[in-house]
Simulated assay, not measured.
Amino acid sequence: MPKTILTIVLLLVCYFLHAQDIYNHQLPVVSSEILIKTPACTSEKPDLPSPVVSYGNREFVLFKTAENKYTWIDVTVENGEIFDYRQGLYGKGNQLKADGENFPHFARTGVHTTEELADAKTITGLSVAKITVDARPWGSSGVGFVAADETIMSVIWADNQTVEKLGLTHPDVARPLFHFWNAMHYLEQYNSEKEQDSRLQLTSFFYNKYEIRFKVQGSRGWQESIFNDEILGTGHLELWRELSVEEQRFLEEKYMHLPADQMKQLKKELSYLHTGEMVLFYINRYGFYEGHNEYRVDPVTVAALFGFKSIEELHQIVNGDLYSYFVTHFTENPE
């Protein structure tokens, strides 16, 4: 085998071995040459999976435009230029960074151990007690990052157990959210250089077997992080998809005892997310999804929304009671 080809093969092997360390959910591999990439579009929906990873280790997701055309956007999760609202810097930020100083096992494998969490007394130099105070409602924000009866460690521990039951890692859960965020980052940069009538307008994207719609809205100022880090938030991200007829039928049969308002809430929990960009970085860096508030990114919701697991599988994973799973606060701390 020629030396150049051997080098390429070895690099690919090293990449996929590293990816396996942090991702349990592997992406299909394709040649980037067959992808119609932005700003180019095609009128027919490509007969390819989405997302995919190319031979050049770039990640792509298929998007649909307002003109019912299709285009692939490079959404690779990576550490990019600085992302800091205070300094007016809008790079991709440190998307691969994990807190290895406080959580070495988590940084190596993408999941925590109970012992690691039980031993944690500080995170980024702040005591977990102080972080909890700041995270509760009316601490560092009105809504808060956890519910009043939750602690920072009780939330991280509970979500870590759920992610393990899903057969995923925390980077697995963060990746589709970063894919979306990176596409919006590309869109903003592209459109900033175009006249109004030539800007790219996107309406939805395809992830595994689902079409997902979205809405992005900014706000005045920014939210400071509860951790001693650079993570800030100012955006409102909404993502949703329609539940299939089969999914709705399953829920209505298994949860026929629920009153109408609770059934409506359950369906929404499985098909809709409202969050901010801070949580994407929190998941990958600490395994923190926020507690029970309106910005929470529940790993079960992510698994349903992005097609990691079927609703039937999720029903089994949470012991046959999805509704109780979603509404029950995390009040037990790791011991």
Rank of each mutant, 00 (worst) to 15 (best):
E269Q: 15
K64P: 05
L27I: 04
F180P: 02
A147P: 01
A66M: 07
V318P: 01
Q26L: 13
F16N: 03
E188D: 10
L48D: 04
T301P: 11
R136A: 11
V279Q: 13
A118W: 01
G291Y: 11
T122N: 11
A260P: 00
T76K: 00
N24K: 14
A19G: 03
M1P: 02
D172A: 09
N191A: 01
S198P: 01
G91P: 08
E44F: 08
E238F: 13
D197V: 12
L202E: 03
A158M: 11
G233T: 04
L200F: 03
L202N: 05
L280A: 11
N24P: 00
E188T: 14
I82G: 00
P104I: 08
Y272K: 12
F288L: 07
I22M: 09
E150D: 11
E290V: 04
D172L: 10
Q217K: 14
V75T: 14
R58P: 00
V155R: 09
E78L: 08
N228F: 04
L177R: 02
T71Y: 05
H179M: 09
P299T: 11
F306G: 02
V13W: 01
K97F: 13
N319A: 14
K64F: 07
S140I: 15
L243F: 02
E290S: 12
S271L: 01
A66L: 10
V302D: 12
V216R: 12
N182E: 00
E59A: 06
A303R: 04
E247C: 06
I82L: 15
E253D: 14
K267C: 06
I212H: 00
M153P: 02
I152V: 15
I226A: 11
Q87G: 15
F214D: 10
C41W: 00
V318R: 05
P49C: 06
R58Q: 14
E313R: 07
R220C: 07
E294V: 14
E242C: 09
Y90E: 08
A135N: 12
K64G: 10
A40F: 04
F227D: 05
G56L: 13
V9A: 13
Q26Y: 00
T275V: 13
T42C: 10
F214Q: 05
A148I: 10
F178W: 04
W240K: 10
C14S: 11
F103G: 06
W72R: 01
S324A: 15
L200V: 03
I317V: 12
L273Q: 06
E211I: 08
S54G: 15
L6M: 10
Q248I: 15
T234G: 15
E313G: 00
L237W: 14
